[in-house]
């Protein structure tokens, strides 16, 4: 018997108040993790052959040796690795991410200007993937073994097997090229002069296809998890009990079965936070969205260590935050879960 029954009062405010010490402890614990991640990334990136100056020389189509060494000296790339690393960590501790030699701008500015786009995409994609996964999972489970179930499962398998860039291109081909309903890519219409609500709608139109493409990556996982959970719980006594006391079929399905089966799906969102970031790289490139993923890809190609390090740290923060948020949501949805 755990705790005293019935202490919980209902309301978001009090829930968050109760969760605050947990949030604070998590954040403190995250610091050493972030430092480790930063060191590890630094090491890994230095294992890759070539540096930012090589990449710049490539971008410029060639150049002589003196120019390259001048550039190396300018960006401190000629210093010993350990010196570079400690300088970086020292600055990082002061929340200084340094200046990107490639973009010639502060890394923090580069990241913050792209962060909203990635976050928006990740948020819409997650929301969509979870809702669609849940609805399809429930629908499949409710028809377990019959044609609707098989159809949904087969579709999930097909989608699961398709690479996301291909899904993206297919969506473009159908909805942008053939039907002409939606734009091919971009975050908003270039230099449209739109503002206010019109601009919001314009952005929304641009986000539909990338959201779909990124979400499809996860829908099949969510729906299968949901379906399995539903079937698992279908024989549970509390479901029989609900039916026995006269709860209508639909409500049994949603309020009792689905409400419980959704918990592993939510937990999966936390597990997949890093996959989501990875998927965003591909999708952002296919849909010409200037988000973090694309910045990361470009930075690898350009050996832009400063930006990459900043991105890794920010990504780690995002993953940790998503995990924390998922844990909070889980705690709110499942009274058995206790925040630690």
């Amino acid at each position: 018997m755990a705790g005293s029954p019935g202490t919980g009062s209902r309301g978001l405010g009090s829930f968050l108040a109760a969760a605050w010490p947990v949030i604070r402890r998590r954040l403190l614990l995250a610091l050493p993790v972030l430092l480790l991640v930063a060191c590890g990334t630094f090491g890994l990136l230095h294992l890759a052959p070539g540096d930012a100056v090589d990449a710049m020389v490539i971008a410029g189509g060639g150049g002589d040796a003196a120019l390259a060494s001048e550039l190396r000296a300018r960006y401190g790339l000629d210093q010993p690795l350990l010196v570079q690393l400690s300088l970086y960590l020292l600055r990082l501790l002061q929340f200084d991410f340094g200046v990107s030699p490639v973009h010639n701008r502060p890394v923090l500015a580069l990241i913050t200007e792209r962060l909203p786009i990635s976050l928006l995409l990740m948020l819409t994609a997650t929301a969509f993937a979870v809702s669609l996964g849940v609805v399809l999972g429930v629908s499949a489970a409710a028809a377990a073994g019959r044609w609707r179930d098989r159809l949904i499962l087969a579709a999930a398998l097909v989608i699961y097997a398709m690479p996301s860039f291909w899904v993206g291109l297919m969506l473009i081909l159908v909805f942008a090229v053939t039907l002409g309903w939606l734009p091919v890519g971009g975050f908003e219409t270039a230099a449209s002069g739109l503002s206010g609500m019109a601009r919001v709608l314009d952005i929304a139109r641009h986000l539909i296809l990338p959201t779909l493409a990124l979400a499809l990556l996860f829908v099949s996982v969510h729906l299968r998890l949901m379906r399995a959970g539903m079937l698992d719980l279908a024989g549970a006594d509390f479901v029989r009990m609900a039916r026995a006391k006269g709860v209508p079929r639909r409500r049994v399905l949603w309020a009792h079965l689905a409400r419980n089966a959704v918990l592993p799906v939510i937990a999966m969102v936390g597990v997949q936070a890093s996959t989501l970031l990875g998927g965003a790289v591909v999708i952002e490139s296919v849909f010409s969205l200037p988000g973090l993923g694309r910045l990361a890809y470009d930075s690898v190609v350009a050996r832009d260590l400063a930006t990459l390090m900043g991105l890794v740290v920010v990504s780690a923060v995002i993953v940790l935050t998503v995990t924390l948020v998922v844990d909070l949501v889980m705690a709110a949805l499942d009274p058995r879960v206790r925040l630690r």
Binding site: L169, I172, A176, V177, G180, V184, F287, Y297, D298
Partner: peptide, 22 residues
Amino acid sequence: DRIVFRVMPDKGAIAAAHEAGE
């Protein structure tokens, strides 16, 4: 009057945008 260079890192997307008339 104006030239708009649209950043499109994916070549496949450029082909699609051509077909869509964008």
